[in-house]
């Protein structure tokens, strides 16, 4: 289910966080879908279980996953709402902030920046 690379500089729990968030947001993991248990995932990928538990706990706090007594964790029924607009905007916030700082340093105007973003948007459409 996950593509995990222990040798990456990105900690495994972050790799799991990003993949679950993406798969839930895109509907690949609809509400109610069961996730593999921490133990199964650790043994299957030969990785430490704690980093997996950490990812699952964060996703639970975010409301994306639900813990069920004695059964595997599942994608929360409310998960869709959590990935609605404000949440997704919040995720891209730091990148926008960075871009705006850079644009100001380069003395670009707001109009010029917005125009450039629009151009990039159109070019990257597949």
């Amino acid at each position: 289910m996950f593509i995990l690379n222990p040798q990456s500089g990105i900690p495994i729990y972050r790799q799991i966080l990003e993949q679950v968030r993406r798969m839930v947001a895109s509907g690949q993991l609809p509400p109610g879908t069961a996730l593999p248990s921490v133990r199964d995932l650790a043994l299957r990928h030969t990785i430490n279980p704690m980093t997996i538990s950490r990812a699952y706990s964060i996703l639970e706090t975010e409301g994306l996953l639900e813990r069920n007594r004695g059964r595997p964790m599942t994608v929360a029924s409310q998960a869709k709402n959590h990935t609605q607009l404000p949440k997704r905007l919040q995720q891209i916030g730091p990148l926008i902030e960075q871009t705006v700082v850079a644009a100001k340093q380069l003395q670009l105007s707001e109009t010029e920046l917005v125009k450039a973003v629009r151009q990039e948007w159109e070019n990257s459409d597949d």
Binding site: A42, L43, T46, N48
Partner: peptide
Amino acid sequence: LEQLLAISA
């Protein structure tokens, strides 16, 4: 490694 994981699980 797999055995160590099983032990620590």
